[in-house]
Design a protein around this nucleic acid. Structure first.
Lengths: 346, 346
DNA sequence: TTGTAAGCGTTATCAA
DNA sequence: TTGATAACGCTTACAA
């Protein structure tokens, strides 16, 4: 019952219950090959001795680690303040826990690191599957994974970026539609977007969708790229607001930049929403707590984490998962969006 | 060079370079026992074949996993929105990466789980060391770790809570001093605190320090406990502000509650800072972005993560670390604190 | 300096 | 139903 000081092995259990080690293995793993009597005895003794399988030995013997790999890009400022990653981890962790898997986390300092880490994981068999996030256009990692089909991988990205790898896909184009339509209906005809890094795949996808949607509706559209941090979001906002005519609405690619942007507007004396509407891509407590509350594209990221985890477990079991859709975005309207200024309407 | 499809073992390398497997092992691990000539040859061949050590085999042979365990309490709302945990992880991860360690993460659904997970890690030898966070008074985990001295552990907590375990200690009492003094100097004589859960060790420590500091200065002090979430912070604020006489200043135990509290004040028409001063324990972009900006006790959490990681690596090496102090808190004064209302001063 | 062989703690095969 | 015994891939003591 109590954890033992020195490791209890299957041989100790075997000796104590008067059977062989293989009988113990069968019994403990619930496999056929032992009588119910010995099974019961073995289980009893194992519990008594506080036996637990040694992880390394188990991994070696069955070539399974019961670990899922996740690489985090090192940017404390961003990781910590942007709720996305931790929400995803919460969902992942909760689902993995149910199946006795854990999450193995490593940190990459730059983009080359990231590929090096996954190659390391493939070569050392340190994880049973991995998650690919924040894909770039023509990302090295896709090629790496294609060359190592024995390592299950799930990409979380727009399906157009994942080159046929198993994918948990978000429909960003649909979300763009929601956002643009919302602003259009409020009379906005000149909108801007403060986007993430240009090289990120989903920035690219969103860029394209915005261009298309705004062109179709005859809306003037402008896009600035940032590194996702509040500081760069604030900088972009300052630039957008200091040249006339300025846009009547700004959509930010994440919630921290939206919050930072709203502050800038306040400092510049631009009233939200009567002179400027603000929207955020991804919603969190910050959008709710802001004054005025920020209209946002909300999605259930924790749920995505759950889905990602269970898809990876399926992949590990050899199942085919193809492309699965994330829960869709829902527009959460708050006070930061309103009718476009009368003199600027179409 | 390219990662191979089927696993390359040291035997493959041995055969290809015409030596024995032990020679290969010595060569690859930079140990004495082989001539420079064969070492060079082996390294060459290993690189060519794309050999990397199998993690499980290495772990089994040397009883080392190169993994550090971290248990996260499941509360997506809190984990995601509160920057603390992710900041710590960033620091941990960055430091571990330098020493080729990774972070093994599991999620606990409740307090019993947490102890079960660490007992599991001890029994299965799945990690080389573990981190203990959010200790409660009389926490089970302390007892578990005491009974298993072979498993290195580092507690991140006030030293009074860790019963002699190796500790990365924060001086919360000193921080309390900074905060109380700041408000006292501004003329506040009735302050309230919106604290974390009562059972958490550091809530307790802070409670005690606040009581003492305020008593000493003749300040009226009131404390409400919450579960750390914005919603509960908002609720506590509402209660504090709706009974007269209300406090002239509120200190929140984290930044999301401070932000939520500021919103509540705005809604109730209580002006910050002229009618109410607000302070946050722990600082983040949210405190900066708030209007007015929130005065906060700032500390370098990423740095704590770095320290925690390197302390754990020392513990793994059998070094004694004792109690090490975290970087101290620094008071970051912003616009949310000001002189107490004239009619309420001493 | 080199090779043989015995662990590490499991799982799994194959006779008995 | 059982119990030897051979993997799994590496490290390391011991012999050559």
């Amino acid at each position: 019952m109590a954890a033992q000081k020195s490791k209890v092995t299957i041989f100790d259990v075997a000796k104590a219950s008067g059977v062989s080690s293989s009988a113990v293995s069968y019994a403990l793993n619930g496999k056929p090959g032992v009588s119910e009597a010995t099974r019961a005895k073995v289980l009893e003794v194992a519990r008594e001795l506080g036996w637990k399988p040694n992880g390394a030995a188990q991994s070696l013997a069955q070539s399974k680690t019961r670990r899922i790999g996740l690489v985090l890009g090192y940017d404390p400022q961003l990781l910590a303040v942007e709720p996305y990653m931790m929400s995803l981890i919460s969902g992942l962790g909760a689902e993995l826990e149910r199946k006795d898997y854990s999450l193995l986390v490593r940190m990459s300092m730059d983009h080359d690191d990231e590929d090096a880490i996954i190659e390391d994981w493939i070569a050392t068999s340190n994880v049973d599957a991995m998650l690919l996030l924040n894909l770039e256009i023509g990302d090295d990692r896709i090629e790496t994974m294609k060359q190592n089909p024995q390592m299950p991988v799930l990409a979380v990205a727009d399906a157009s970026l994942t080159a046929g790898l198993p994918t948990l896909a978000s429909d960003d184009a649909a979300a763009v539609g929601l956002a643009v339509r919302h602003l259009y209906d409020l009379g906005h005809r000149s909108i801007a977007r403060v986007a993430g890094p240009e090289e990120l795949g989903h920035s690219y996808i969103r860029d394209a969708a915005f261009s298309e949607a705004t062109t179709e509706l005859g809306i003037r559209y402008r896009c600035l790229h940032t590194d996702y941090t509040p500081a760069s979001g604030a900088g972009a906002t300052r630039r957008l607001l200091s040249v006339n005519p300025r846009p009547t609405a700004i959509i930010y690619d994440n919630d921290v930049m939206a919050l930072a942007g709203e502050s800038v507007a306040a400092v510049l004396g631009v009233h939200v929403p009567s002179e400027l509407s603000i929207m955020s891509w991804d919603d969190s407590f910050m959008c709710e707590a802001a004054h005025p509350g920020i209209t946002a594209l909300n999605r259930d990221i924790v749920r995505s984490g759950h889905m990602a985890a269970s898809l990876m477990l399926k992949l590990i079991d050899g199942e085919d998962v193809g492309v699965v859709e994330e829960p869709p975005y829902v527009l959460k309207v708050r006070e930061s969006t309103g009718p476009a200024p009368a003199d600027r309407q179409a």
